[in-house]
């Protein structure tokens, strides 16, 4: 008696996507997998927020692998403008062409038509992403670093998927890219951008998930040592640190221990302290975790 919209399974369900991501070595939480599934099915951009080093960028890479498509990346920074994000004319070629044309005696109108044609256009990530035959994954990394003008421009691109070049006219998307935006809170994003996106917050993984990540990335490690590593890193995250170690740092740490040939974390505090260089990246954090504290944390983790 309840009227329901019949389920339309345009794609596999979110758990299938989660499994597919796991085969590429990315262990996604339920929240994230669902957000990714919704975003790809509806063709909406996905906004990922979370601390640095929780694997936001990696999501895009894994999604591209799963979908067997290209990953186009746009790294944002303050002052990013159209010439670096969208397109630019190839000025050197244009200059050469004009010189050659003037020697050959071509007329101005013909030269102009040629040098402002697609052959002389340099594609930058945003333009490139909408002109692919197969929908690529477009990663707009650290959007909060770009200034507000760029954010506003991005809104236009993300809603219409078209780009207007004064000399050429409007270029419409041949395929809609899967857009993933990441932010780690250097400034608040505008509500307009948030509303246009599907949202997921990526947190530090819990113990089980992180063990699975470690197992997927460093298959050679012994079970006992991986338990210790994860326990140690999770304990370390509870300390008051300036830069909390992320998943990437944890993997570095595991690789470093592997390289040093350590079998047990509690074995040699001096070596442990040396390996901490992969986890603690500021001077004050190094001072905050002296050798005794590290040994104590390792003892607790064991």
């Amino acid at each position: 008696m309840q009227r329901r919209t019949p389920p339309v399974f345009t794609m596999a369900s979110s758990t299938d996507l989660q499994k597919a991501l796991a085969t590429t070595g990315y262990i996604a939480s339920d929240d994230l997998a669902m957000a990714l599934h919704i975003a790809t099915s509806l063709g909406r951009p996905l906004l990922l927020e979370g601390a640095a080093g929780v694997g936001k960028t990696e999501v895009a890479r894994s999604l591209a692998t799963v979908q067997d498509t290209q990953l186009i990346r746009l790294q944002c920074y303050e002052g990013l403008d159209a010439a670096q994000a969208i397109y630019e004319w190839n000025y050197q070629r244009q200059l050469l062409s004009i010189r050659a044309a003037s020697e050959a005696g071509e007329t101005g109108a013909a030269v102009e038509a040629r040098i402002f044609s697609q052959d002389y256009l340099l594609e930058r990530p945003l333009l490139k992403a909408i002109r692919q035959d197969k929908a690529p994954v477009l990663l707009i990394d650290e959007i909060d670093r770009a200034d507000e003008e760029f954010e506003a421009y991005l809104l236009e691109v993300l809603s219409d998927y078209q780009i207007t070049i004064p000399e050429l006219g409007t270029l419409t998307a041949t395929t809609r890219p899967h857009v993933i935006l990441t932010a780690n809170g250097t400034r608040d994003l505008s509500d307009a951008l948030r509303r246009r996106c599907i949202y997921a917050h990526v947190d530090y993984p819990d113990r089980q998930t992180e063990l699975a990540i470690l197992a997927a990335r460093c298959p050679g490690l012994e079970a006992h040592l991986s338990q210790q590593i994860i326990g140690f890193v999770q304990k370390l995250r509870e300390e008051e640190l300036e830069k909390v170690p992320g998943v990437a740092e944890m993997l570095d740490f595991a690789a470093a221990l592997g390289g040093l040939g350590i079998k047990d974390l509690t074995e040699d505090p001096a070596v442990l302290q040396a390996a901490l260089a992969t986890l603690l990246k500021t001077q004050s954090d190094r001072l905050a975790v002296p050798i005794e504290v590290a040994a104590r944390l390792a003892g607790k983790a064991a």
Partner: peptide, 12 residues
């Protein structure tokens, strides 16, 4: 729940 969460929630 997860589907509605990803659509409706806009920040942490």
């Amino acid at each position: 729940r997860l589907a509605l969460k990803s659509v409706c929630a806009g920040c942490l």
